[in-house]
């Protein structure tokens, strides 16, 4: 009888690689939330010419598999072009760790999602989006459905915290049905901006609380 994790998972858990923050990151992304019990944030530095990821760091709030997957996915992505890094999937991450318990697979998915979102954010910011589709309300809502409402542990769209958005020549306004001084308001505001600002045609994001 032993712990449900492989030796490799425990190694990465005990001594995670590529941990921390990149202050002047070219792109970053957060997936998950403290409400879910798992959260990963990924920072990227990308070489402007070769599009190779030449620095990558992660921060994690979560369980052992969350930390271990953050560690392995950043190992795997480092030195790859963003095109190749985008193709990484959770199975490769899990395999590189020698497997993950079935109930912990969602942690691996989270880290892969964070990497992909960070790359997408980079592409949007650097004009690399192939099909320049204009940001519509549907796109905004889709992105916001990844922002978690810490009160309910579900996303802000499903829990009706966000019911109205407006898009006008690069400016997005998001109304949040929550008091301005709520303990989670600043956290939610930051996450909404992080989700929408990287979109290629978005200039500014305004978050207005109207639950007072």
């Amino acid at each position: 009888m032993s712990l449900p994790y492989t030796k490799k998972v425990l190694e990465h858990f005990k001594h995670p690689h590529n941990v921390g923050k990149i202050e002047d990151a070219d792109a970053q992304a957060t997936e998950g939330s403290p409400a879910c019990g798992d959260m990963v944030k990924i920072y990227l530095k990308v070489d402007a010419d070769s599009k190779v990821i030449d620095d990558i760091k992660f921060e994690s709030y979560g369980c052992a598999s969350n930390i271990a997957t953050g560690s392995i996915i950043t190992d795997l992505a480092l030195g790859k072009t963003i095109e190749d890094a985008k193709k990484l999937n959770w199975k490769e991450a899990a395999n590189a760790l020698g497997g993950l318990p079935a109930v912990k697979v969602h942690c691996a998915v989270l880290a892969v999602d964070a990497l992909r979102t960070a790359i997408t954010n980079y592409e949007h910011k650097h004009g690399l989006v192939l099909e320049k589709k204009p940001t519509t309300e549907a796109v905004v809502i889709k992105r916001l459905s990844r922002v978690i409402n810490p009160l309910a542990g579900l996303d802000v769209v499903k829990t009706k915290l966000v019911q109205e958005v407006k898009i006008e020549s690069g400016n997005i306004t998001v109304w949040v049905e929550m008091p301005t001084h709520h303990q989670f308001s600043s956290n939610i505001k930051e996450e909404i901006i992080e989700r929408l600002e990287p979109l290629w045609d978005v200039e500014h994001v305004e978050v207005i609380f109207r639950g007072d």
Partner: peptide, 26 residues
């Protein structure tokens, strides 16, 4: 503050201390 329980419990186990957490992961 700022940290999740299962990670604490697992690290503590590796240090030879048996405790539990109310975390979902656990």
């Amino acid at each position: 503050d700022y940290i999740e329980g299962e990670s604490v419990v697992l690290h503590m186990d590796m240090k030879g201390v048996a405790i539990i957490t109310g975390s979902a992961c656990f």
